[in-house]
């Protein structure tokens, strides 16, 4: 019943599943898996930490976006309610990138105390409604955006 090939395959499938569960147990439950850091944490970075490529999430500060034509890009500020960091972005931002909404920037916190990024992602909130409702000023219940940054 237990031919050699079957046994190896069985062990393989068990390893696969054990690996998956192990990743869950060690990766997700531990402190290791941090998808992004907040502007306050970036401000407190030591010089060694600045070497690594990181993701920073925050809310795009209103009236902070300034575009440049050459090279195409923009500068803006990200905030988590406590600290604010300036971001220099090269490229064309995604369509849903917007002032007063969440954004995740990938890049480096450099010695000039500016975050340099070439990739931004939009982090949208959980409320959905047609534009007419939005213009009528209706607000749907949602989690405070700053609280979604460090739950």
């Amino acid at each position: 019943m237990w031919t050699k090939g079957k046994k190896t395959s069985l062990i393989l499938s068990l390893v696969l599943v054990a690996g998956a569960l192990g990743y869950l147990a060690l990766g997700n439950f531990g402190e290791n898996l941090v998808y992004f850091v907040t502007p306050s944490e970036v401000r407190a970075f030591s010089p060694e930490q600045s070497q690594k490529k990181i993701r920073v999430a925050g809310m795009v500060v209103k009236k902070s976006i300034k575009t440049q034509a050459d090279p195409v890009g923009l500068t803006f500020e990200l905030t988590d309610g406590e600290a604010t960091i300036p971001v220099v972005f090269q490229g064309i931002p995604p369509d849903l990138f917007k002032e007063g909404q969440g954004a995740v920037a990938e890049g480096h916190w450099q010695a000039d105390k500016v975050f340099h990024s070439k990739m931004i992602m939009a982090k949208h909130s959980e409320d959905y409604m047609p534009i007419e409702m939005k213009r009528a000023g209706i607000k749907l219940p949602k989690k405070d955006f700053m609280k979604t940054l460090s739950p």
Partner: peptide
């Protein structure tokens, strides 16, 4: 028109 929900530079709309 009504305040556009998202009008900014470098945006495709």
């Amino acid at each position: 028109g009504p305040p556009p929900e998202n009008l900014r530079e470098l945006k495709t709309l």
